[in-house]
Design a protein around this nucleic acid. Structure first.
Lengths: 232, 232
DNA sequence: GCAAAAGTGTTTTGTCTACACCCATGA
DNA sequence: TCATGGGTGTAGACAAAACACTTTTGC
């Protein structure tokens, strides 16, 4: 039975399958995407998303994790599949089907050596340079998805440092939505979900009075990750 | 440059890429999914989603359209990509990456000969039999996505006949959400979007009084398809 | 005239938005 | 003492939810 199956399948075309990663980070002011300067042809020297090919004995998800690790050195990153881009002409070099993933990382968690190696650089999402192939559409779609995701999930957990001020969280949401938000309404809504814990410690870097730090309540956060809570 | 690119790429593994279609229909009472009895090994005789392989010179989207046409005979069907399933072990017969698509069709638009040929059958979504491989997860994910989609888009246009009664539209939404909805509130909301036009014609099949038929205002519907309108 | 489905409004509740002032502190 | 960012509450608008009776007509 197994053998017959294999025989049956051998008749079909095989394609190269790639993974491309849209990596978002937040520096406290701007939402940024991590791009690399492509080191090989075609389009050598152009800006591109970090990508790579799926191996025969490798899950597609695993390939995404591997590729992300190549660039960041980080193994456990928030990541989700975005979309499969499958046009025959999308890559002029060869027929390559690409599965795009988007990842959220803490922007200071970077490995300078790896960044150097791949000529990686953070770009504010409002100032993305020309990208190869269909990478610009991937990035735009990822931006949409992040927005949608942020509306029912407090993505701050993935993008902010362990402890952060309410202003930082607000700034993150303003960056994601590219508009100003009302400080009081935002605070109210996010606190009402109960996923934040206020610490007895203040960040005195940006003001004389100092702003309280918050941390995410990991347990509640995980619960919400499954069910979701609309708060935007 | 082109040549170098090709050379570069030749080193990577090639995989078979399949497309599987989750096809939803609505018979006036129940939401149903179209399944086929698999005609070849492995898992011959088991129920399965309609699927096929992507050809080397074919867009992945085009493959989905082709495969859907094979089964239904219909060329212009509402369809969207759902997710790419890429585990190495998902298909025991071979390494196959599958891109799942979900489609909405009018249940009476069927071609008996083609259905016969593929041993196709409609199953109520509450009574889906065991399916091969990971097709059950595909179907569950599609159900989720349909629900989400229906919340900001009047999917009725794709699933109902050209003219339909308010009760039919309500029944569709009750089937999608698997719960009862308030008739008055539903009517109010859907009418307030302005995408329905009331005809001067009644369906007298289900009651003595008769229920007015409605049609979708195609233009407004298309506008809403882009922007979306929350009405659930 | 009665059974069976169609059609229709109002009240209440909760949520979202807009909006401005005092507080604490370091310099 | 003053300049700077931090922190907080309320009123009005709007949307959502709950809820029941009258209408039509074929039998």
């Amino acid at each position: 039975m197994r053998r017959m199956g294999i025989k049956q399948y051998e008749d079909h075309d095989r394609l190269m399958v790639a993974v491309d990663c849209i990596i978002f980070g937040f520096d406290g002011k701007e939402l940024k995407a991590l791009l690399i300067k492509r080191g090989f042809e075609p389009e050598q020297g152009k800006w591109s998303l970090m990508g790579g090919f799926v191996k025969k004995q490798e899950n597609v998800d695993a390939a995404a994790v591997r590729i992300l690790k190549q660039l960041t050195g980080l193994a456990s990153i928030y990541m989700e599949q975005l979309y499969c881009f499958g046009d025959t002409k999308r890559d002029p070099g060869a027929r390559v089907v690409s599965v795009a993933y988007f990842a959220l990382i803490r922007i200071d968690n970077y490995n300078a050596a790896l960044f150097e190696k791949h000529h990686a650089k953070w770009f504010p999402i409002a100032k993305i340079p020309a990208l190869i192939f269909d990478h610009k559409s991937m990035l735009l779609l990822a931006k949409e998805r992040l927005r949608q995701k942020a509306s029912y999930l407090p993505v701050g957990f993935e993008l902010l440092p362990d402890k952060f001020t309410m202003q930082q969280l607000l700034a993150l949401y303003e960056a994601i939505y590219e508009r100003e938000l009302d400080k009081r309404n935002f605070t109210k809504k996010i606190l009402s979900t109960g996923i934040l814990q206020k610490l007895n410690e203040k960040d005195k870097l940006t003001s004389k009075k100092g702003a309280f730090y918050f941390v995410f309540d990991k347990e509640k956060y995980d619960r919400i990750s499954h069910e979701g809570v609309g708060f935007m």
